[in-house]
Write a protein that binds this DNA or RNA. Structure first.
Lengths: 146, 146
DNA sequence: GGAAACCCGATTAAAATGATAGGGTATTCC
DNA sequence: GGAATACCCTATCATTTTAATCGGGTTTCC
């Protein structure tokens, strides 16, 4: 069970925007310093915009910015936006994908797990990451990456 | 975030074996009635065997059977066996996969979520599915699948 | 009007997934 | 002992998904 890079990149991007909230729109150029190819990042930001998480200003001096406070943006919203909804198995979303249908205990268990994961992801907000960062301090006692 | 069919098929297979526990080894042939191509299922059962979840009897009259009670087999074990460990992002497992390294709040959040999902999956046992099935009754009031 | 910057659909390259193929090995039963 | 049964294993292939690129369009500021 893996997230694609979309989720990771999307979260990086949102975290970047959260860190620069109140500084006006950030250009694609500057956001891409998080280490994501500009044109690929553009697609992801498009999804985030369509999901209502970021707003954009077009034209010169334009860019992307968060459309609401970091405390109101959850991991779930970000992942949903860039990767689509979590589906452990198509049978949890599509009733007719298998003929075992409603009495299938496998189906039941997937639903249980999906619900819990969703609740978990929805409980973590972007603001939690910002405060975590602060608590962590400028922890430059990090083992220098080889 | 999706599970591949391996997880689903693996769970179907284990559920089948749990339902036939005590009846002696079940042949690949009979297990494949769950709707999985025999040769593909064979690969999955191989993984489940290597993980210690099923034991096999070779030769004529042989087959597969659970190697311990359903109450001691969790979803996590099954998914780990057939899909490998859950990794939302390679940066939670590999320290050196990104140079942001240890102070990265994104990394922190992935770890949080992974832990919770793992705990969740480990809390659900095969036996829970069996009892759920019984509670559900032979619920043949199901809407007949088209 | 030109430069900055977002918008968007189409295409492509690489990787993962789902499935198949084909031969090998162990065990039972006659 | 040999035929039949049934698991074991690696390699290959086809399909789908993912990651990324391309190339043009539109909006806005100066």
């Amino acid at each position: 069970m893996k997230l694609s890079t979309r989720g990771k990149y999307g979260l990086y991007a949102m975290y970047y925007l959260a860190s620069h909230q109140g500084e006006g729109p950030q250009t694609l150029q500057s956001i891409s310093t998080i280490g994501v190819p500009k044109q690929y990042l553009e697609q992801l930001l498009g999804s985030l915009r369509r999901a209502g998480l970021v707003s954009t200003v077009r034209g010169a001096q334009g860019g992307y910015q968060m459309s609401r406070p970091a405390a109101e943006v959850s991991l779930l919203q970000i992942i949903d936006a860039v990767e689509g909804p979590i589906e452990l198995s198509e049978c949890t979303s599509d009733e007719h994908s298998c003929d075992r249908a409603c009495s299938c205990p496998v189906r039941w268990v997937w639903q249980q797990v999906s619900e819990r994961i969703n609740a978990e992801l929805d409980g973590i907000k972007l603001s939690d990451m910002l405060t975590q960062q602060r608590q962590d301090g400028n922890s430059e006692q990090c083992p220098t990456p080889s």
